[in-house]
């Protein structure tokens, strides 16, 4: 499978942006600069980027509480996101939503979501619209290994099959839901098989490998775009941080985090592959690294300087304000 150079450059930039965004957010939370509950995506970058590389702006995604990576991969404005996390009125959601509710409807980002498995049913609606309009669009929802045990997720999967809509269910197994292992919370031994039993194909990928996710997502999305109904993507890859910033992570085995960072790194794997194939040079990738670091740094500076919301804004945007026309 040959991937256009442009796609490769964008994919690497996107993964690096997610990584640096998250690591910087982690540091700013430790400094007490970012309020609220924040869940970091570090380590899982290839999932979001491998999937979103196949989407354009009018395809939709719906994300989870761990949403920064999905939003960046789908093209959300990084500076607007950073401002949102800092609670600025210049943030993507005017400081109303914060980390768990980053959204950019114009970019097809129907929102991160603070309710586990709140997203899949909504995504089925977006897919249904695409089917009725016959516009070839797809709707992607992301779910974790914990989220898939929620009734709303089951309902969405079954209804997507019944309605034969172009819904893509991405299941990201990072092995834990908060402090509980998938070994406990998913009752059967084979989550892929359980998902396929709903009646759609599920393509499996190593979530540390952008190329594997890209390939699996390509098949799933092609299946749905061609009008064959929903499809799934099942990717395994651990997160590098706790469930939330500050999680003591008592559930980890000794050496688990070190092993993840050392041997399961989508960025390292990407660079290794490029060194082997020669498609992108180390210099090209280094240049991206430098640009991304500068962008993230600037986004934090901008976020700290950005306007703060005022009390009158509390009650704005509860409803649409209709202005009377003469």
């Amino acid at each position: 499978m040959s991937i256009p150079k442009e796609t490769l450059l964008n994919a690497y930039r996107s993964m690096k942006t997610i990584r640096e965004f998250e690591e910087r957010v982690n540091a700013e939370i430790m400094n007490g600069q970012i309020p609220g509950f924040t869940h970091l995506y570090t380590g899982q970058e290839a999932n979001a980027v491998g999937v979103c590389a196949h989407l354009d702006e009018s395809d939709t995604i719906i994300s989870t509480h761990r949403g920064h990576g999905h939003c960046i991969a789908k093209g959300a404005d990084v500076s607007g996101m950073m401002k949102e996390l800092f609670g600025s009125s210049e943030g993507l959601c005017k400081g109303k939503g914060g980390s768990m509710h980053v959204a950019d409807i114009d970019k097809g980002i129907l929102g991160a979501n603070g309710i586990v498995a709140g997203g899949p049913p909504i995504s089925v609606g977006s897919a249904l619209a695409a089917k009725i309009r016959k516009n070839g669009k797809v709707a992607v929802s992301f779910s974790g290994d914990g989220s898939v045990n929620q009734g709303t997720c089951f309902e969405a999967m079954n209804m997507a099959v019944v309605l034969q809509v172009p819904a893509i269910f991405v299941i990201e197994n990072n092995y834990y839901s908060e402090h509980t292992s998938i070994n406990y919370a998913v009752g059967c031994d084979d989550l892929k098989a359980r998902t396929e039993a709903f009646g759609f194909p599920v393509f499996v990928a190593d979530g540390a490998d952008f190329f594997a996710v890209y390939e699996a997502a390509g098949k799933a999305i092609a299946h749905a775009r061609a009008g064959n109904g929903p499809a799934g993507i099942f990717a395994e890859q651990g997160r590098y941080h706790g469930h939330f910033v500050g999680d003591p992570q008592a559930y980890r085995a000794a050496g688990e985090l070190e092993d993840l960072r050392e041997n399961h790194c989508p960025l390292k794997n990407f660079r290794k592959r490029m060194a082997e194939t020669g498609e992108l040079s180390a210099a090209e990738l280094d240049a991206i690294d430098a640009e991304v670091l500068a962008e993230i740094d600037q986004s934090v500076k901008d976020a700290k300087a950005a306007a703060r919301p005022t009390a009158e804004q509390v009650t704005e945007d509860v409803y649409i304000q209709y202005t009377a026309t003469a």
Binding site: S177, H179, T180, S181, N183, Y184, R252
Partner: peptide
């Protein structure tokens, strides 16, 4: 409830969370 014990199925000490 969810994580009222905690760490089930993991390498950690089951019961060490006691709810979020």
């Amino acid at each position: 409830g969810e994580d009222v014990a905690g760490c089930n199925g993991s390498a950690g000490d089951v019961g060490s969370v006691g709810g979020v």
